[in-house]
Structures are given as C-alpha cells and as structure tokens.
Nucleic acid binder design. Structure first.
Lengths: 344, 344
DNA sequence: TATTAGCACTCCAAATCGATGAGTGCTAAC
DNA sequence: GTTAGCACTCATCGATTTGGAGTGCTAATA
C-alpha cells in the first residue's frame, strides 16, 4: 500500500469528515478555510489532485468538489477502528426494557437502534445449530394429536403438534418420554443423526410406526430453527433520508431485500463464519456481498451467548454514515445483549 | 342519493374503466371514440360536466381530462359487488403449497397474493380471543424453571418458561396440572377473569405463592396472543409501480405503516368488528381509517374457521386498482384458506 | 523548491422561454 | 337535444441562458 505523508492524511481526513456532515462534494476552498493547517486553496488543490491519483477521492464530474472513494472510506474506518481500542466510549445507555420473550427483546432492539441511528437495522436470533437439547416432552392433547415440546439450552422452546392415527396410551407415552430425554439430552442439533434415530426407533420396539413419526418430528422440530435463521428488521424507510439512495428504483430494491430477508440471512451467515475477533465488521460499498447494497455501507457486530451460540446485529446506511456513532452503538449493544440474553 | 340516467351511467363507467387501464385523465374525445353509444365529443363534454357537478369525477386541473372521484369509484365498486353474486369467477387456482405450520402458510399466502396482484398485501392470523383452551401442561425443566404449554382450539400452541424459586415436586406438579385442566378447559380468553383466578389460587392451597405466579403466567400466555394480533405482509414495495403513490414522501410513510404493523392491526380489528356478510369489504380513499392510505384503496376479506375464529386478508393498492381481479382473488382465497386451516 | 494569487475554463443546476398539444367551455347552427 | 367550430387554458417538454462553484494551469513570490 502507498503511504500518505501526514499532510495528505490530514487533508483526506478533513475531506471525509466534511463530506460525512454535508453530503455535498467538498472543494479546495472549504478545506483551506475550515482546517487548522493554514494553506491556500491552491495548495490544497495540488494535494487533492495527488489524493485523487492515489485513488482515495473522486470527482463526481469535472469541476465539482471531491468525494471519498471506497478506498477513502476504508482509510477512514481503519483509522477509527485503531482509535477505538484506547478510547472510552461515552454514549448514554440505550434504553432496552427487559422483556421475557426473546422475540420481543430482539424486535425492540432493532427498533431502538434504528431510531437512535436513523439507519436501517437488522438482527438475527441466536443460531441454535450449536445449542443443545435440554428437555423433551410429549403429551397427548386428544386422541389423534400429540404435542411435542423441545426446550433448548438458553430456554428456547419449540413445539409441534403431531398427528397420530391410533391413540397412544399413557404408559407408552411415559416410556417414550423417558427414552427421548435420556437419549437426546445434551445433544446438539448436528449430533442428532440418522444413526441415532434408527437406534431409537429400534429401542422403541412395539410402537415403531407411531414412534418413527414422533422421532422424525422431534428431529425436524429442532432442525427447523436452524434453517430459517430468524431475522428482525427495522427502519428500512430511513434510507429516504439520504438522497443518494432515495431514488425510487434503488429504494424499491433496497426495501425489498429488507422485506424478503433471505439475502440478509445469507449476509449474516457469511459474517458469522468470517469473524475477526473484535466483533465489529465494516463493509463498504462493493465489499458487501449483497448486490442491492453496493451503494451502502454495512456495519455489523456479533453478540455471543457463550457455548458457540452467536447472533448478529447490523446497520445498513449510506456510505457517508456516521461510522463512529454506529460502531460505538453496536459495540455497546453487543455486550448489553449478550449479558441480557445469557441471564434469561 | 341522486340517480343517474342510463346514458350518464354508461359514460361514467367508460371513464372509470379507461382510467383504470391507462392511469391518465380521460378526455371527452376518447370516450366518444371507444364507446358503443355514438355521440360526439361535445355531447360527452356536456354530460361530463354534469357528472362533475354531481361529484363523480374531477379535473386534476383546468383543461385536463377527468378522473374518477372517490364517489365515482364507489359507484363502480358497488356495481361490481352487485354483479359478483351471479357471476362465476374463472381465475385459475392460486397455488398454495400445503405446509404444516400456520405461520409458514400465512407468509406464503401473502407472498403469492402480492405476486399475483402486484399490490401490497397483508394477512392477520386468526384471532384467538374467541378460541378456547383445549389443554394445559406444566412440566419441570430444571429446578428453577417450569415450562407451561397451552394448546388452544385449532391446535395453536403457546408456551412460556416460568421461573420459580423453590423446586416444585412431581406430586404437586401433577395436582396443579389436574387443577388447571379441569378448570380452564373449554374456556375462552375472555372467560378467564380475575374471579376465576382467585378461586383457583385458593383451591391450590399450600403452594399459593408459587401457584399464583404460575396462574398469572398462564393467563398472560393466553392473553398474549390476543393483544399482539399477528400480521404478515408482503409486496409493500409494489407501490413504486404506481407513480401516483411513488413520490418518496408518500412511499416512505406507506412502507413505514407496513413495517410497523400497529396501524394495520387496528385497521384489521376495525374490519373484523364491522363485518358485512359477503366477507368482502372495499375502502376507497378517505373511507380507510389509516391516514397514510388516503390515496389508496383497501380491499379486505375475512376468512372464517368456524366457532367465531376469524382472520383477515387485505390488499392495498392505488385507487385505480383492478377491483374486479382483486375481489375475485380474495373471495377465492378466503374460502380456500378457511378450508385448509380447518383441516389442520 | 514549495506556496500562492490570478485567471480562463468547465460543467452542473436552476431559471426562463416558447412551442406543442390535449382538453375544455361556450356559442351558434342543425 | 346534438353537434361543429373556435378561443382559451394549462401542463409538459426541450432548448437556451445564466450563475456559481470548483478546477487546472501559469506565473509570481518567499
């Protein structure tokens, strides 16, 4: 990478900051006036010309001011990241009411975050693929319906009604409950494989047919939560606040990806795989894998519930978003969320 | 109401249909050419002038063609409604895969509908306020957590983890289960009142403190589903297809109400209360109670699962929507949905 | 040699102007 | 009652103009 001398760095930094505030291309005269280094606009112009050649800034058209390129933003963000470690952030607590249901909590979190930042936000529920079974219970609701309830680590509950042809008597139900609990307890989803299932079927003996169905359904119940990576979003309409994203073509596509959520899900699983360590990631423009977000930046944080259970919070906004505020918000929230959810 | 002679009716009808197709204000000459009544544009002009005075059509500005007013649309829709009864609709089956989970089913329905009509759609899950308790089960997950599961009529399941200080032994758990099932079985949410709750508490005797919490939580669990009227939406971004709704101000507000859903919920409960009988309602412009939809029309259908359990499907689009298609779609879907859900 | 002042040049954005054409209302004739 | 004809209105579109912000280059300066 090409090194910038200190003056160039200062100028670049000033350009970016100014652009973040105003959203307008910034000219040499502006920098010359609002910066501590006392240089004439002409000198700044020369330096800007260099910076452009190096790829940090671009001109939207000849004889307009300069705006940061993706490379420029990257420079800015990396510098922020470095600063962040020493610095003590002083944002006021984000007010999150403690609620019982995780779903409500997550919905509230995205909402608060969207309000606070004025960008679009998303959050994924903790992925259960690595969570393990804590408790299984089958009970007869009526003659033809058995209710199966599975409690996972972290007290997440999944349930399902199973249809059976013949009623199952109490004794067998009890047996089955025992069998399931002793064999499934403590297992993660990935550990419940076909081998185990056939083994259980055999052990179940006489009621094999009914039991097969029950077992399959239990496995399915648990797996369900794995595939459908639950995602909550908020503030998608905030993009209308940023003219560079608000033309109806782009806005429509953008909000669609928020409505559909599949693409967000793939984005999130990408992120959770390639984790850095600090827990905060920034994707600028093209760096994001989602086509409709080429003009945006995505900032994400992974929150951690221990035992390998993770979820992701994300903020999507214009490239000229207030990275500092966003990163502070996220890193605070990520810790807060982790500790709240662990307690539940 | 003022009666229209036949010729006026025909002209009005022609104006509306033409406008629905083109979205452009329609002039006297157009009507004069494309209609079976052979009249010159001048005559049409005179009639149009009358129709305007009567409030059925308006001019967006002097010396432009006419467009239907809300009153005009109302005339058109009422006429459609009347025709609808005799007519056999011949739309091809909307393809809905049968899935196990109601949630998935509903999500799929709104999606299919949005795709098919190219408008924004919403659906409410069946309201449980009139549904009754079928089965209650408490089970000890570990020393400090009791899992309560409530199955409602229609096999809808609600569950909740209750924290308790002291472990509850098996015997007491069993007693409690008996108590709850015998007393709550068959009751609707509205029938579970404070009196009943205190009565149950007394009967529970020794463990009153723990039991109070359990009972409260059960009641709360059931009520939860009542307040939070679950709503699924799709195709909100379709409004960008209709220029008259697509300016960023309006679009932003519109999509916001779709994102938030609270307002939709109140709209839906309004609708479910004031039901007509045919099951299809049309709200044109100002007739809708939601502020952000003054420029839209809302068409809804109530689907019925029997026993007073109802849900609502809705389509929101521009006033110049294809009412016929929309109404046909909805009335077909409403029946289909009813029968699918009843079977589950 | 680095910095600066000055000036010509570029280009966008907003304002202005006129032409076009669709559509009306009115009047007078049929 | 219907129609032809005509003057008038008004939104839309394109071309033109203008103003201003900003650049690049050159020559002068420290």
């Amino acid at each position: 990478m090409d090194a910038l001398d200190e003056r160039k760095e200062k100028i670049l930094y000033a350009i970016i900051q100014n652009y973040l505030e105003t959203g307008e291309p910034v000219g040499s005269r502006t920098i010359s006036k609002n910066s501590e280094l006392n240089l004439s606009s002409a000198t700044i112009r020369n330096e800007m010309s260099d910076l452009e050649e190096l790829g940090y800034i671009v001109q939207p058209h000849t004889s307009a001011g300069r705006i940061p390129s993706d490379k420029g933003y990257r420079f800015y963000v990396d510098r922020l990241m470095a600063e962040k470690d020493q610095e003590v952030s002083d944002i006021k607590e984000l007010m999150i009411e403690k609620t019982e249901k995780m779903e409500k909590l997550l919905k509230q979190v995205v909402k608060v975050l969207a309000n606070n930042t004025q960008y679009a936000t998303m959050i994924s529920a903790p992925a259960l693929s690595k969570s393990s079974v804590k408790f299984v219970q089958l009970s007869a609701v009526d003659e033809h319906h058995i209710l199966s309830v599975v409690v996972m680590n972290g007290n997440l509950v999944k349930n399902k009604i199973i249809e059976v042809e013949k009623p199952l008597d109490n004794e067998n139900l009890l047996k089955l409950n025992m069998l399931l609990n002793t064999n499934l307890n403590g297992l993660t989803v990935s550990q419940i494989n076909l081998g185990l299932i056939t083994m259980l079927k055999e052990q179940a003996g006489i009621h094999e047919d009914i039991i097969a169905q029950v077992l399959n359904t239990v496995a399915e119940t648990i797996k369900d939560s794995d595939e459908g990576l639950e995602i909550y979003t908020s503030g998608a309409t905030n993009i209308f606040k940023y003219p560079e994203l608000a033309d109806s073509q782009k806005a429509s596509e953008f909000i669609s990806t928020f409505e559909e959520k599949e693409e967000l899900a793939s984005l999130i699983s990408d992120i959770e795989d390639g984790e850095t360590g600090t827990g905060i990631q920034v994707y600028i423009g093209d760096e994001s894998p989602i086509e409709t977000m080429k003009d945006c930046s995505v900032v994400t944080a992974t929150y951690d519930l221990g035992e390998g259970i993770k979820g992701t919070i994300g903020i999507i906004g214009p490239k000229r978003m207030d990275y500092k505020k966003v990163m502070d918000n996220l890193s605070q929230l990520k810790d807060q969320l982790g500790s709240i959810l662990k307690k539940e």
